[in-house]
Amino acid sequence: MPHDGHDHDHTEPPSDVALRVKSLESLLIDKGLVDPAAIDALVDRYAHRVGPQNGKKVVARAWTDPEFKQRLLDDAREAVGEFDFKGRPGERLVAVENTPEVHNLVVCTLCSCYPWNVLGLPPVWYKSAPYRARAVSDPRGVLGEFGTELPDEVEVRVWDSTAEMRYLVVPERPTGTEGWSAEQLEKLITRNSMIGVEQAKSPADLEGGA
């Protein structure tokens, strides 16, 4: 892989890190502390099997089933249990709903807490210093960087995940989707809309290939 050796590129770390990881991995395997097949199994789960597709199912159902939505807002961990993607031990899920009056945004200023079971592992920007620093002090500025502009009268609520509670944003259902099935609606739901940095897509966005 070409690398000039000077640019500290976050997507192509210096090979000495990769070597250090290999060294630690072989040490832990030799000591019998880590099973390489278990490493493969966890990587496979989080690279391929768990991701925003789970959260999209939850939100689409909340949009189409008012009773489910109420259960989700009352106790998201119980409600998501209906889908068979349970959380990690200790994690409790809370769903917060966007409305015409309130927009919710999730951050972890201290590290990278994120609802793995419904969204998978967080994107790099969610774990980055600029986002963690400014989501709480300048949420409208942060939203603007994602192209999200809110009317002045909308209240922005920022959820700082400082404990083992995990937050899922239920974006507003876009207009012009009356009568759509849950499967159709899933196409409008993005990972970013469930973190709260964007709105769900509109039907026009889909037609435009956005």
Binding site: P13, K22, E25, L121, F146
Partner: peptide, 24 residues
């Protein structure tokens, strides 16, 4: 600035070693 990678283009792991560190 945050400079997010586009959602549809971002891989879960950006290098194999990241996935090994994560799982270990």
């Amino acid at each position: 600035p945050i400079n997010p990678e586009p959602e549809t283009e971002e891989p879960v792991f950006h290098a194999e070693w990241e996935s090994r560190v994560f799982a270990m």
